[in-house]
């Protein structure tokens, strides 16, 4: 047997193994995280976006079906649900902050969350996107595990929702400071809250790195707007469907 056919046989064996894709996913993430850290946490090099690109490129180059990949990667995917439940902890740990500014927090989560929905919907309709894409985009400002859950429930495409959610976080983290400086918003709580509500975890990480108070409010905004949006979007759909 020649060297190359032997190599090919090993490859055929490996790519049928779920463990191979599980290992590749973790490896790609570790590599991406290393690149991100060595470039001073530059927002465009977000490790999630990078690792998705690395793994997708492998699948396309080696012509591997997504189902085969997911057979291994599902063991990681499985933890997304429990991680969503665990998001209660950062809200709980910051509960005294919520109590201190409860009026501002409650009203801004409700009105700001609704504003985000309307902005996404309005812009998407204006640009003539189709209904599936609109449903996919709608929950983009909340943390990815919740956004994907909402997308699935209302009939969007969860994997695309993951991507647009990550892009939302990256853009918010990259442009937020500049935008809020331009507006001369000096209240650190308000700045943090805007980061958390408009660009979830990636924005929150950015706010935390710059100012502690802003970081805490960002974390609260991210958590609460995730819950509120998960209730609000399906409710809006129910109302629309009820009226039509």
């Amino acid at each position: 047997m020649s060297e190359s056919t032997k190599l090919y046989e090993v490859w055929v064996y490996l790519q049928a193994e779920p463990l191979f894709w599980l290992t590749l996913t973790i490896g790609a993430y570790l590599l991406a995280d290393q690149i991100y850290k060595s470039c001073n946490l530059f927002p465009i090099l977000n490790p999630v976006a990078l690792s998705i690109m690395i793994v997708s490129t492998c699948l396309i180059v080696f012509e591997v079906e997504y189902e085969r990949y997911f057979d291994g990667a599902k063991f990681i995917h499985f933890l997304l649900g429990p991680a969503t439940v665990a998001l209660a902890i950062p809200i709980y740990l910051n509960w005294n902050v919520v109590l201190q500014a409860k009026k501002a927090i409650i009203f801004t989560v409700l009105i700001g969350g609704f504003f985000a929905l309307c902005a996404t919907y309005g812009l998407a309709v204006l640009l003539g996107l189709d209904i599936t894409t609109i449903k996919t985009l709608l929950p983009r400002n909340v943390t990815a595990p919740i956004a994907m859950g909402i997308s699935e429930v209302i009939g969007g495409v969860p994997s695309l929702t993951a991507i647009v959610t990550i892009i939302t976080g990256i853009l918010g983290a990259a442009l937020g400071t500049f935008t809020l400086d331009l507006l001369k918003i000096k209240d650190m709580a308000a700045r943090g809250f805007a980061f958390g509500l408009a660009s979830h975890g990636i924005g929150t990480a950015r706010a935390m790195a710059r100012n502690e108070e802003a970081g805490v409010f960002a974390a609260v905004a991210m958590g609460l707007s995730g819950i509120v949006t998960a209730v609000m979007i399906p409710l809006v759909f129910l109302i629309i469907n009820g009226l039509v």
Partner: peptide
Amino acid sequence: LLFVPIGVGV
């Protein structure tokens, strides 16, 4: 890390 498997679905 947990977003990667579903994100690759893109």
